[in-house]
Design a protein around this nucleic acid. Structure first.
Ligand code: NAD
Ligand code: NAD
Lengths: 213, 213
DNA sequence: TCCCTGTTGTTACGGATTTCACAACCGTAG
DNA sequence: CTACGGTTGTGAAATCCGTAACAACAGGGA
């Protein structure tokens, strides 16, 4: 019944939601797919098509109610509630993540932090006690956590991912430079600035050859 | 002549390259698309098709020479040379980026760092002096920089991007939570953990409804 | 009331990407 | 020197996704 929704579409929804939130801040009450598209470099048709997977949210001749559509998108994405996050690895990056103020306002709460280094265990990052990663399984089985964030060295990442998955977590944000293996029903997103750069070089190398100005 | 190559293909090449480097480290000398695909969760056909855009690198019956293919990919992507990187914004995130040891070994050298805060200007991060972002244009016109990394607050990001672009930079790695506007000939990659999480919630919310064990 | 402007929701089309399937080929063993 | 298991490179088929186009409609003004 629920037509299968392409993952690319799902990935664009949060982008729309963020833009709508910004428009709302600016005091805009309605927006057309045209206007929204210009802001995001997306064609209006794309936006309308994406939204049509979920229902009819606009009004002909006027566009979309900013707050109304935002609420709908948040509902669709499940952003109308809080999500519990566990962070594994409190090295340099892990600390930066724990202290980043961008998650909380969006409903992502880091409720647990783990590390294997005895020197780190027991310390506090952003008001959360660092637990021994041996306790990961026990803790996660007793406390509801929705998303796991992996910030350990690459060689330890698969093991950490496996533990998270075994503990029942079905969404993982991975910062380690490797592609984790997970079951089909577990969502993974990789954050990898090096890969991002390495794909851009192809294009700037190319332009040099093509002989720009 | 050079058949247009899909961007998705380009984005996968660095992943292949990294896996090949890992295989080389393990002492493997040849690898089949099958084996490589298992490691990366990519179908063998996909790998072969991707590579076929650039030439014929394998041997029937054996597979690919690990070092040979790695060298080819690095050449294709332009990773066989060093790239100069400029970082704008040395707040918490900017410092973490400057100190991250993962760029240098891949040939990405942060050669300049900028910030608008007078308190930050003149200080040193990872042995590089922080310059006033007013000097951005002057500096970039005199020193060759290939890639710009944006780590400033969202409200300042478009302005920074514009400056980088005007200074001739054609590749931008953006950490600010917004979608920068750039000319067609400028490559952009956005790093945004919040968006990543916000798309995963759709799937884990869904599973809850479907009623998993 | 009727017409005009603006914008949606949707269907149909076409292009892009992935998958399939197999002929061609390599190296080895007999 | 032939046969065989293994694997590539690649067209053709299948699937996925984005774009175009337009009927339907909302609101406002004459
Ligand atoms: N994607 C990015 O933007 C980005 C940026 C920086 C670093 N990284 C990657 O993130 C990871 C961490 O980087 P870092 O600079 O913080 O490294 P780090 O060495 O400073 O920190 C790693 C932490 O993980 C802990 N750890 C190791 N094995 C563990 C295990 N099995 N269980 C729990 N904790 C464990 C260590 O004790 C340490 O505290 C690395 O893989 C690095 O490549 C990614
Ligand atoms: N993608 C991620 O993983 C991630 C993580 C953390 C933060 N962020 C984002 O990165 C950005 C920086 O985060 P932060 O925590 O470092 O913030 P911050 O406030 O600590 O640092 C921002 C820095 O940018 C400087 N700056 C401001 N305007 C500038 C301008 N016009 N030119 C040059 N420099 C300017 C400020 O002086 C400051 O030093 C924010 O947009 C934040 O949302 C992204």
């Amino acid at each position: 019944m629920t037509l299968e929704i392409p993952e690319v579409v799902i990935n664009r929804l949060p982008v729309y939601a963020r833009a709508l939130a910004a428009l709302a801040m600016d005091g805009e009450t309605v927006v057309s797919s045209q206007t929204l598209g210009e802001r995001l470099d997306v064609t209006p048709a794309q936006i309308r098509k994406d939204l049509s997977y979920f229902g009819r949210f606009g009004k002909q001749g006027r566009g979309y109610n900013v707050l109304g559509l935002l609420a709908k998108l948040r509902e669709i994405l499940g952003l109308d509630r809080k999500w519990q996050v566990a962070l594994v690895g409190v090295g340099r990056l892990g600390q930066a993540i724990a202290e980043y103020g961008g998650f909380e306002p969006q409903g992502f709460q880091i409720v647990a932090v783990f590390d294997s280094d005895p020197a780190a265990v027991g310390t506090t990052v952003n008001e959360v006690v660092v637990r021994d990663s041996e306790e990961l399984d026990t803790f996660l089985r007793q406390n509801p956590v929705d998303i796991g964030v992996v910030a350990v060295p690459a060689h330890a990442a698969q093991q950490v991912v496996d533990r998270l998955v075994n503990a029942g977590i079905r969404a993982i944000l991975n910062y380690a430079p490797m592609m984790p293996h997970v079951p089909l029903d577990v969502a993974v997103r990789n954050i990898d600035p090096v890969l991002a750069m390495q794909s851009m070089t192809f294009y700037i190398k190319r332009q040099d050859l093509t002989g720009a100005k």
